[in-house]
Amino acid sequence: MEEQFAKLDIRKDENIVYKRTPLLVDRPLSYCPGCGHGTVHRMLMETLEEMDIQDKTIGISPVGCSVLAYDFLNIDMLGAAHGRAPALATAIKRMWPDKFVFTYQGDGDLAAIGTAETIHACNRGENFVIIFINNGIYGMTGGQMAPTTLPGMRSSTSPYGRDEKTMGHPLRMTELVAQLPGTYFVTRQAVHTPNHVRRTKKALRKAFENQKLNVGISFIEVVSNCNSGWKMTPVNSNKWMEDNMFPYYPLGDIKVDGKIVEPKAVTAKAGE
């Protein structure tokens, strides 16, 4: 039935303008329908493909939904203990300075249990890339409250909404690490629309190019959805993300080439 609209005359290899990069392993991703992880994986692998550095890249996956990232990314990878990816990356980059090294971490991994490793790797100015997927919830373990869960947001461990008085405030790790002299490029992106995807890929390219300069950490936060954890359809979760996550976690570059871009006064809160 779909084939009734097929334009067989142009379905030729030479006319392919976009296809899944072979640097993604040819197997179904384990993520929920509509989850941003898959898009970030693809942009990451496209970046490595375009830079032709598949053989020079060592990646580190976290604990969380993307614990199995190494099954999908066709590069050599290590699976770290929860939160410890920046420690692994530190040692690897120091002993293999010519390799391209990145960590791929979620909000629980990077901003809760791995806060010390994150801050200190950034502060030492280690020369690798940190990719930080922030969806404001623990997805893998079943939708518990994360350090980045918004005020009032419901999760399985904040069933009446996050009460900042007793549960603390959402942590803006990206603004925090931008203050450290060891970070060189700090940005916050998203992957829910074509333009956002393009910008994320541009940021990834810049981050990996920075590694050639030996100038410190490139830190890319991707604000993403968790439709399972948020209990919404994928399309609705992206809308909710725009309306609620982006005011608290505004998109854009925070630090470029070692300089703070614009010290944004972030005052908006979810629901306001």
């Binding site: 290590l78 770290a80 203990a81 420690a87 692994l88 040692a91 690897i92 002993m95 490793e117 200190h120």
Partner: peptide
């Protein structure tokens, strides 16, 4: 920054 980081640096280094 800690013994926790130290041993995980070993994990990274040894893994390569």
């Amino acid at each position: 920054e800690s013994e926790v980081a130290s041993i995980n640096m070993l994990y990274g280094g040894a893994g390569t």
